[in-house]
């Protein structure tokens, strides 16, 4: 049992290795974009996983507000953190791709803008969790934040789409042929495994911290320590 997680982590490392092999060696060079296109195999799945993390955080926070079980909150916290890690990957790799392809590091393109705003929201969530202190009030604050982020993301999407009004480069992904698509999905599932690992370990850490606090309180009441 104690070796389960290390073993799974090793498997995750292997998964990342496989994903690297697929993205950099296995897949043929894309004709129009060349090597930079290989960023897609990590960039796009990471974006999906970021939104998955945000979704899990939203759901768990809503659940926490309804049933008030601290574990739900711990899960929301962990999924926000995990999502943020993948969101950072998206933000780092995006400009790497945009510079050679668009000629600029950044473009006020709807997809990009939405992504960055959602990332800002969850970064704010993380800041609240990290520096707001412990305690129920802060936990509830963070939960409300995550719940409000849900509809907010919808509005951001609509507003940004109308504001930018430029064609998103999603076509570049949909235009691609089967090998590229298949590799993309495979990479997604490999990364999903790593996502799950990270979520699991972060959740366990938060949950254990909760238990430690509860046990401490009981000890203090009994006059120990």
């Amino acid at each position: 049992m104690r070796l389960l997680f290390p073993a799974a982590t090793a498997l995750g490392a292997v998964a990342i290795g496989v994903a690297h092999y697929l993205a950099f060696v296995h897949v043929p060079m894309e004709s129009t974009m060349g090597a930079v296109q290989r960023i897609f195999y990590f960039h796009v799945p990471s974006a999906w996983l970021f939104y998955l993390g945000a979704l899990l955080c939203f759901g768990a926070s809503l659940g926490y507000l309804i049933n008030r079980k601290a574990r739900w909150d711990a899960f929301a916290h962990a999924s926000a953190e995990t999502g943020l890690v993948f969101g950072l990957i998206v933000v780092v790799t995006g400009p790497l791709w945009a510079r050679p392809v668009w000629g600029v590091w950044w473009n006020w393109e709807p997809r990009l803008t939405t992504m960055s705003l959602v990332l800002l929201m969850f970064a704010a969530y993380w800041v609240v969790r990290a520096f707001g202190g412990p305690g129920q009030g802060v936990r509830r604050f963070a939960a409300v934040l995550a719940v409000f982020a849900g509809p907010s993301i919808y509005f951001v999407r609509v507003a940004v789409n109308r504001w930018g009004g430029v064609h998103p480069p999603a076509e570049t992904a949909s235009r691609s042929d089967d090998v590229i698509k298949l590799t993309m999905y495979t990479c997604f599932f490999l990364l999903l495994f790593v996502f799950g690992l990270l979520l699991r370990i972060r959740y366990r850490a938060h949950r254990d911290a909760l238990t430690v606090r509860a046990v401490r309180r009981r000890l203090a009441r009994l006059g120990g320590i």
Partner: peptide, 9 residues
């Protein structure tokens, strides 16, 4: 949000 933030540092 401001109401909720009161309890945070």
């Amino acid at each position: 949000l401001a109401v909720m933030a009161v309890s945070a540092r």
